[in-house]
Structure formats: structure tokens, C-alpha cells
């Protein structure tokens, strides 16, 4: 086709685009995925029975805010990466802050307990299932986020895939925290982060192939 004819054709299909459409696509993908993940968590693992008591503890809110802030910064990063010609460095730095905070908190807590307590504190009672469960619960969010990104325009496929994986992992971890009754910062810093990191790795690997347009 001649370029002039193409321009005529495209101009004829130039319908109005509302300002928030890109953000809505991302919200739909991530939000839809999160909804599926939450239902899967309730049916598969169940919300922890002591939820009401747990909400009175700082350990619960530590997990809640670590994962929620990580996910929020993650999706902000993705929103930038999905738009050509924008820088996402500040968002990436912001994304590292929740981890820095929880790692610091974990180190302080570990330093304050007797040496013999440190290992049990870090390992908890569910470290063998925690990262994998987080990764599984992250899958619907992961799929939804990739669906969104394919509709948008990420110009850096590997980085965008990594960011999508980390954000999905963080949201999966947020949802898993409704079930998980671990309360040590060291446990969360290690095993939650490992689960999130696994999903991030998968995102980087798949982004290279799936985020092409």
C-alpha cells in the first residue's frame, strides 16, 4: 500500500481516545488478575482464621504495607515503561525502597534476638511453600499485566517484563499475606521477596518474546 493511502486510511479511523485509556487498560489487566488471584487464595488456602486478632499486630501491617507499596511502585513503573519516550528511573528507585525498609527492619530484629533464635525466625514454619505459593497466586496478575502491556507500547521488552513480573509478584504476595500467619520481618524479607523475585525473573525471560509489537 502507498504511504499516502495508508495515511488516509488511518486518519479515517482516528476516533477519539480518552485521556485515561492507557491507565484503564493497565488497571483492567492487573485488577482483573488480582481478583482472580484473591478468589484462588480464598478457595485454595483460605484466609487465616485469626484475621481479626492479627490485624491488631504490627507484623500483619508490615507484610501488608511491604507488599502493597512494592506492588504500587511496580505498577507505577509499568505505567511509565508502557509509554514510549518516558523515563522510569525514579519509579524503579521507589520500587526498591520497600525492600530496603523491610531488609533493614529484618536485620535490626535479628540483631536484637539471641543468636539461637535467628535461624528459626528467618525460616518460620512455612518457608518451604511460601515463595512457590506467592508465584502461583501471582500468575493471574502476571497474565493480566502482560495482556495490558501488549496493548500498550513498551519499548524495552526485557525490563518491562521484569517490572511486570515484580509488580505481579508483589500483588500475589499481598494476596498471600491474607492467608500467611508468619510474623517475622526476616521471614518476609527473605521468602516473600524470593517469591516476588521468581515472578520477576519469569517476566524478564518472557518479556523478550511476548512484549513485541
Amino acid at each position: 500500500m502507498k504511504t499516502d493511502a495508508l495515511i488516509d486510511d488511518l486518519a479515517g479511523r482516528g476516533t477519539a481516545v480518552s485521556a485515561g485509556r492507557a491507565a484503564r487498560i493497565l488497571g483492567l489487566g492487573a485488577g482483573g488478575g488480582a481478583l482472580v488471584s484473591f478468589v484462588a487464595m480464598v478457595l485454595w488456602l483460605g484466609i487465616r482464621p485469626d484475621m481479626a486478632d492479627a490485624m491488631a499486630t504490627s507484623a500483619y501491617w508490615m507484610k501488608f504495607f511491604y507488599t502493597l507499596l512494592f506492588a504500587a511502585a511496580g505498577f507505577w513503573t509499568i505505567d511509565r515503561l508502557a509509554r514510549p519516550g518516558t523515563s522510569s528511573r525514579r519509579q524503579m528507585i521507589l520500587e526498591a525502597l520497600p525492600f530496603a525498609a523491610i531488609a533493614l527492619l529484618a536485620l535490626v530484629r535479628l540483631a536484637l534476638v539471641p543468636a539461637a533464635m535467628r535461624m528459626p525466625m528467618a525460616m518460620g514454619h512455612s518457608s518451604h511453600v511460601c515463595p512457590l505459593r506467592i508465584a502461583i497466586l501471582a500468575l493471574p496478575v502476571f497474565a493480566g499485566t502482560f495482556w495490558s502491556l501488549r496493548k500498550l507500547a513498551p519499548t524495552r521488552p526485557v525490563i518491562s517484563g521484569l517490572a511486570a513480573g515484580l509488580a505481579a509478584g508483589a500483588l500475589g504476595a499481598f494476596i498471600y499475606a491474607f492467608h500467611c500467619d508468619e510474623s517475622a520481618a526476616a521471614f518476609v524479607a527473605l521468602w516473600y521477596t524470593l517469591g516476588i523475585g521468581l515472578v520477576g525473573l519469569a517476566g524478564a525471560l518472557l518479556g523478550r518474546f511476548l512484549l513485541r509489537w
Partner: peptide
């Protein structure tokens, strides 16, 4: 030109 068309929702007029 086609990419500009299909991805035009990703343009933020603030930028």
C-alpha cells in the same frame, strides 16, 4: 505510522 495509530492511547499530553 500504524504503530502511532494503534498505540496512540499511550501518549500522555503532559509530556
Amino acid at each position: 505510522l500504524i504503530a502511532i495509530h494503534t498505540k496512540r492511547a499511550t501518549y500522555d499530553p503532559a509530556l
